[in-house]
Design a protein around this nucleic acid. Structure first.
Lengths: 342, 342
DNA sequence: GTGTGCGATTAAACCGGTTTAAACACTCAG
DNA sequence: CTGAGTGTTTAAACCGGTTTAATCGCACAC
């Protein structure tokens, strides 16, 4: 009778061999006669047997799963274009390998370390993605202490035992600045993300150095937080300046789109009175009015690459090399225009 | 010496009892003397012992995890405001209970059923969330066949063995229509989502019946796909109509925001020439220009409720009752205005 | 004819918990 | 003094795989 799922023992009796032989055949271990292997595989097939992940997990001490801890306010997370695509990219690598992705969302106020601790102590995952990397990120030491393999998204500033998968934000940022300069803008401001994040500072420093290369200084730098509300506030402050910018480069699209709204609210027209550029090329960038000039990264590829790198670093013995992804590309739309002489 | 993590055997020898006793003490089983329980718990504490999830999973045949399969194109998923907040809500329930969330992203073209099959056959999860519920959703039969508990997000039209957690879209939709009517609009169109989804048809039918209650008919219904690109296209078609609408209700914010862009592109001003309303109250809705009138749901609460319901249905013996969430609320902003007489 | 070597196979231990049935200690009634 | 009854505790089986050490069969050399 069908007494639940078939086990390895069922396959063994059916094929007339021992449990161990079935295990060998399944895992392609040498030492079995080809005929026996075929017979076992056939028996397994007929029974529709698939090895139990739980049993395998216990005996080989692996979870066959990777973990992602997202430290983000739910409301803010909702409109983050990065993670969903990143996760899809991770999945594209994990699914064919029979691995799973375990997610953990932590609200910024809570104990972020607890998230990683739980993942590690429960043995839920074999490794984790370290996203939203910060300067002197305390999570690196934490993971070392927990003995949990990891891959960092972007390169930490201190030496790290983990491989890094990097997407250089500088070329895209520089392209934006050069684009604005070509349009005649000289008074350019930047609305930055929280400087604790390495990608936020990367964009900021690339911005200032690109301006410096043209012998210019930023008219203003507004510290913000990557949210639409933050973008609105920062924009208001910039427009209230005695000498307001003629162009603003935002560290992400959300702030940029909110910035366009704030500019309109202030009676300005984009791009006639103010040029605006963002970063991410999120879905809406193309469809808002005016179409947003921005920088297109590839979070899907980011996720896929990070997953393969992490798996290598878990399975492989030797050290895994860092990976550099192709840089993000400038996408010019209608939110940036020639500076009109006044 | 520290030979890896302590096991239940270590705790047992330390407390001077058997493995079984430790297990009893941990799980609060009756039959142990109080003193013994205290001694065991103390020993466990000193050793910093936490029971291995893997071992527990194997012996009790539970995964202590729930699954979510998202069938969505990565590019589209990126700007979906629902899932991130929903997931955060799920986590808020799972984390304190020591449960985990296993995610699976399936590209629409791929075999969606395979996603659920893998989750079930690998024994990764104890139950799944059935999101983006469709009419005559084939996944219900699939899950029955797989013997995997589930909770449906929204109520299926055919009888289902699974509890449903529902968020009624009709009150919010009706509120939008009444709001537009009060503003004097009579020529109102709807840009709908794919009618395979129950929430898409719910919004559409509520829209038409609310109009019918006022003795009106929709000036047009445009079938679309919840994407910004789709919203743009639908809007263009509506504005090209011989008798174009004076107000458009979109089935989600993304299409609405794209619709505002398309209207501007066509030389119209929102809300002067065209009123626009969306659905979701995504983060950007408040900050685009003009601020988007929309309907605010609470995906975080949705996730939290769905998780508790699913856990109940897994643990509990009896049937679990369906849950009805408080309906979404109309949020009036500046994208809707009094119809100007021409 | 015996020993050696090798490929194929298996029995049994192991991973770290849970659970069942049996054993144990102790009290109290007959 | 015996036996039943009660409250504690434990030994051992079990979950379903992997892995190691031992065994088996057989050809071959000496």
């Amino acid at each position: 009778m069908s007494k639940g799922r078939p086990t390895i023992a069922d396959v063994a009796t059916r094929a007339g061999v021992s449990k161990g032989a079935v295990s060998f055949a399944l895992n392609g271990r040498p030492g079995l006669a080809q005929g026996t292997v075929d017979r076992i595989l056939a028996a397994a097939d007929e029974l529709g047997w698939r090895p139990s992940n739980r049993a395998r997990s216990l005996s080989v001490s692996k979870a066959f799963a990777l973990g992602l801890v997202i430290t983000r306010d739910p409301a803010v997370l909702s409109s983050d274009p990065f993670f969903p695509a990143f996760i899809a990219g991770v999945e594209s690598v994990l699914a064919p390998r029979g691995q799973a992705l375990v997610l953990q969302v932590v609200t910024p106020g809570e104990d972020e370390a607890a998230g990683y601790r739980r993942l590690a102590q429960d043995g839920r995952v074999d490794g984790v993605f370290l996203s939203d990397l910060r300067h002197d990120d305390p999570r690196i030491d934490l993971l070392v202490e927990l003995g949990l393999p990891a891959v960092t998204l972007n390169r930490p500033d201190t030496a790290s035992p983990f491989p890094a998968v990097c997407l250089d934000d500088r070329p895209g940022t520089i392209a934006v600045v050069e684009h604005l300069l070509q349009l005649g803008h000289r008074k350019i401001a930047h609305v930055a993300g929280p400087q604790a994040f390495v990608h936020a500072t990367a964009r900021l420093t690339a911005f200032t150095s690109a301006l410096a290369a043209a012998g210019l200084e930023p008219v203003a730098i507004e510290a913000s937080d990557f949210t639409a509300a933050g973008g609105t506030e920062a924009t208001k402050r910039l427009l209230a300046l005695p000498e307001p910018p003629t162009a603003i480069f935002y560290a992400n699209d959300r702030m940029a789109i909110a910035g366009i709204g704030a500019a309109h609210q202030a009676g300005l027209t984009v791009p006639d009175d103010l040029s605006v550029a963002g970063f991410d090329d999120s879905e809406l960038a193309e469809f808002v009015h005016p179409g947003l000039t921005t920088v297109r990264a590839d979070p899907f590829a980011f996720g896929a690459t990070a997953a393969t790198t992490l798996i290598q670093s878990i399975d492989g013995d030797g050290d895994v090399a860092d990976v550099e992804l192709p840089p993000a590309q400038l996408v010019v739309r209608n939110s940036t225009a020639l500076l009109e002489e006044q």
